[in-house]
Simulated scan of single mutants.
Amino acid sequence: MNNDTSFLPQRGNYKNLIAYQKSVCIYDITFFFAHKYLERGDRTIDQMIQAARSCKQNIIEGSAASTTSKETELKLINVARASLQELLADYEDYLRVRNMEQWSVEKPKAIQARNVCSKHNDSKFYRQAIEVRSAETTANIAITLIHQTDVFLRKLINRLKKDFIEQGGIKEEMYKARMEWRKRNR
């Protein structure tokens, strides 16, 4: 160790995480969807927007906490997943109670949506695309993105668990740095 503070490697570059990029897209779609397709005064507007925001914000907060607390990072990334599941249920409810189709995975529309969503992580792309789409199509695009983001969040959680098992946490890093400093300064 050349640097006495190397036990605190700077982490938290959440903007490079695909899960974060997709969560921004989900938030933007949800904001548009809730204000366009839900009736003014419907509590679901706030609920959906807050669930989408919670996913995005918990990824940010978890990444920021990662420097000193892998436990907090894991918990917050899992809260992001839970928020997505809440939002997913809202979109599914919207389609069901209005007798609209939720695309099954083998439908050509669903396959096309998965392919497009897997290639685009820029919220501007979706903001432009949904302007001319129906409520049903927009909800299904959001559902597709939610499923894809959930996959990335699960992979992130699994990687964080593996990293913790292999590298330990901040206390172990601090102890190791202290012991190495003592060895060098005897």
Rank of each mutant, 00 (worst) to 15 (best):
M1T: 12
M1Y: 07
N2R: 12
N2M: 11
N2T: 06
N3E: 08
D4A: 12
F7R: 15
Q10S: 15
L17G: 13
K22E: 05
S23G: 14
C25P: 13
C25H: 04
Y27D: 04
Y27N: 15
D28I: 00
D28N: 02
D28V: 00
F32W: 11
F33L: 06
A34H: 07
H35N: 09
I45R: 12
I45N: 08
D46T: 13
D46K: 15
D46S: 11
M48I: 10
S54Q: 15
S54F: 10
Q57M: 15
N58K: 07
I60L: 13
I60S: 08
G62F: 06
G62K: 04
S63G: 08
S66E: 15
T67D: 04
T68Y: 14
K70E: 08
E71W: 08
T72Y: 05
E73C: 12
I77Y: 10
I77P: 07
A80K: 07
R81Y: 12
A82I: 05
L84W: 01
L87T: 03
D90V: 10
Y91T: 10
E92A: 13
D93K: 10
D93S: 03
Y94F: 06
L95I: 08
N99Y: 10
N99H: 11
N99E: 09
N99K: 03
M100G: 13
Q102P: 05
W103R: 00
P108G: 02
I111S: 04
I111W: 15
A113K: 02
N115V: 02
H120S: 03
Y126M: 00
I130D: 01
E131K: 14
V132K: 08
V132D: 13
R133D: 07
A139P: 05
N140Q: 03
I141M: 02
A142S: 04
L145P: 08
I146L: 01
I146S: 00
H147I: 10
H147M: 04
D150C: 06
V151C: 13
L156A: 10
N158R: 10
N158D: 14
L160I: 09
K162F: 00
K162Y: 02
F164D: 09
E166F: 08
G168R: 10
G168Y: 13
G169K: 14
G169E: 14
I170T: 11
E173Q: 13
M174T: 11
K176A: 05
A177L: 08
R182L: 07
R184F: 12
N185W: 14
